[in-house]
Design a protein around this nucleic acid. Structure first.
Length: 489
DNA sequence: AAAAAAG
């Protein structure tokens, strides 16, 4: 298995993998905690596969439970890849999809089941799925799985597996009460934190930026951020499904190339959106918290919280969609008038050291290039506000956008062409704008792909990491940008 | 308090 990974260019394990794999191989119950984007999936995946052996008998012997359908698909893909040189079959069991294929895979003797709770229980109650021979059970995003919304289902699933099973819980966040609760399902678990206890859980390679959002046209400011030089893929989080649906329409109307994923869409639409985003056919994903956890997409340089998350754990998971596998990223948060308290709680919990967001707005397309954001010392980040050096004369308050020329909306007659160009650019997969954090994001210069490519990282192998083809791009004017083209132009 | 997760 390790050989198989090595042939795919995966050589050096992440710390969480270094620590959990030996313990997992010993059959020790594990609560594994590590920062976002540091390879937790294989942290449980490799010991899980090892425990089943090279040539396991047909039938379900390992169960991995995840909170969302998209994560289910992804984890199943990662495990399938890791198992590519063994006779172990992996099946994804989740809702919103036909039963037939999933049931057929089970009948075919799949040994590893990755699933969401509802469909797992559904199939179990229909006797299509038996958990009585499960040797290993994993809760991915474990704190979420033990949350009130899921706990009853999880208890049922546990109760259908043998008490002798090997149990592993993984997440970036593990609140104390959840750890206590988790022990009920585990046998003398060891709590592995692959992080310096003094360091906190924020990623040192993610920069945190915050706007006070009242009197701010968020759509407009987001549009500007989406034009940042060197921007790669971007995930925008909204609080509600409706807001996500509205925003994706607005941005696409402005000539951007966005897809949406949220629970009001059917599963086919959701999967199409995710696939397009992963492939780079869409470089913006508008999402509810369905995509806050676990989702691993290469070259996400920006996360934008259109609406502030409800708690600091959600903040951390959302922001963690960028800055993965050692790359740099930026997390931008808009704090509405009513959300100041939420922000202060998040800020305090994550120790980001910024008392309050600053009201500001920049008419400059160089939204980030004028920033001087201090890097967090010792992994502790300072949240920083965007403070344009000047508000240019040509700029006007964003609220007036609809009254006249838009600063970000491309001219009508060009928009069809823009879209085409954007698509072909994205499809190349190695365009300047999608090759990772550029000048906007980096203090470290270009993401050191070479240094991180070797890490045993879930999907780092899915695309071979085409080298960044850096084309010197036309500099946008730093002033008077009243007709700034969309990202593709 | 919203979203997610069965249909």
């Amino acid at each position: 298995m390790v050989d198989a990974l090595a042939t795919k260019g995966i050589l050096e394990p992440f710390p969480i993998q270094e620590q959990t794999i030996p313990m997992g191989l010993n059959g020790q119950d594990i609560i594994g905690q590590a920062k976002t984007g540091t390879g937790k999936t294989l942290g449980f995946g490799l010991p899980l596969l090892q425990e089943l052996g090279l040539n396991p008998e047909p039938g379900v012997q390992a169960l991995v439970v995840v909170p969302t359908r998209e994560l289910c698909v992804q984890v199943a893909e990662d495990l399938t890849l890791a198992a590519s040189n063994r006779a172990t079959k992996v099946v994804a069991i989740y809702g919103g999809k036909a039963y037939e294929g999933q049931v057929a895979d089970l009948k075919d003797g799949a040994q590893v089941v990755v699933g969401t709770p509802g469909r797992l229980l559904d199939l179990a109650s229909q006797r299509m799925l038996s958990l009585k021979n499960v040797k290993v059970m994993v809760l991915d995003e474990a704190d979420k799985m033990l949350d009130l919304g899921f706990l009853a289902d999880i208890e049922k699933l546990f109760s259908q597996t043998p008490p002798t099973r090997h149990t592993m819980l993984f997440s970036a966040t593990m609140p104390g009460p959840i750890v206590a609760l988790a022990r009920r399902f585990m046998n003398k678990p060891i709590h592995i934190r692959a992080t310096d206890p003094n360091e906190g859980l924020t990623q040192a390679n993610i920069k945190h930026v915050v706007y006070r959002a009242h009197n701010l046209d968020k759509d407009e400011v987001i549009s500007r951020i989406l034009q940042a030089e060197g921007r790669g893929k971007t995930v925008v989080f909204t609080r509600t499904k409706r807001a996500a649906a509205k925003l994706v329409e607005e941005l696409n109307d402005r000539g951007f190339n966005a897809a949406a994923v949220h629970g009001d869409l059917n599963q086919e639409q959701r999967e199409r959106a995710m696939a397009a985003f992963k492939a780079g056919k869409k470089d913006i994903l508008i999402a509810t918290d369905v995509a806050a956890r676990g989702i691993d997409v290469n070259d996400v340089t920006h996360v934008i919280n259109h609406t502030i998350p409800e708690d600091h754990d959600t903040y951390l998971h959302r922001a963690g969609r960028t800055g993965r596998a050692g790359k740099t990223g930026i997390a931008v948060t808009f704090v509405d008038w009513d959300d100041m308290h939420k922000w202060s709680l998040i800020n305090k919990a994550l120790d980001m050291g910024q008392p309050e967001p600053v009201e500001t707005y920049s008419s400059s397309p160089h939204l980030y290039t004028d920033l001087d954001i201090p890097a967090g010392s010792k992994g502790r980040l300072k949240a920083t506000s965007i403070l344009p050096k000047t508000v240019e004369a040509a700029g006007r308050p964003p609220r007036e956008r609809r009254d006249g020329d838009s600063t970000t909306r491309p001219p009508r007659e060009r928009r069809e062409g823009d879209r085409t160009r954007t698509r072909s650019r994205g499809a190349s997969g190695s365009s300047p704008a999608s090759t990772g954090p550029g000048n906007a994001a980096s203090t470290n210069g270009p993401a050191d792909d070479a240094a991180t490519a070797g890490k045993v990282e879930g999907s780092g192998t899915h695309d071979g990491g085409a080298p960044a083809r850096r084309r010197s791009r036309r500099r946008r004017p730093s002033s008077g940008g009243s007709a700034t083209p969309p990202p593709a132009a």
